[in-house]
Amino acid sequence: MNEGSEFRPKILVFSTNLISDVGIDYAGLLHMHYPATTSIIRLPCSSMIRPEWILFALESGFDGVFVAADGTDCPYLRDCTERTARRIDQALELVKKNGFRPERIKMAAICSVCAEPFSNHMKNFYEMLKKLGPVKKGEI
């Protein structure tokens, strides 16, 4: 699809029910425009993400995966950031092994009022993915 037209990277976002999804809602409330080619799946906590889900997202056709983690605000886990970072590390290895560029994965802490940081992350990530080009197995 989109052939002949401009490449618009597709981004899968994992958010969290109590924190980052609230921050993403806030970006909407403030009408802060960020790329609309995003799809958002909400989870209880970012530490729930199985690394193979991230691989699966790239295999399914997403050009990038953004994990909107809870950071230190996580209401479940004090060490949420470390745990989520471990998942991301594993995912990075996994996607590399399967021939995808690791730059397609990004994680950042998004707090419940982090409207601007979220929208900036999305814009930057989108631009970066645009330079990388469409996702392709065997790109590395």
Partner: peptide, 13 residues
């Protein structure tokens, strides 16, 4: 919040 408000600049998308 996650579509019409966030992307009022891009109705199609």
């Amino acid at each position: 919040e996650q579509s019409s408000w966030a992307h009022s600049n891009d109705p199609e998308e």
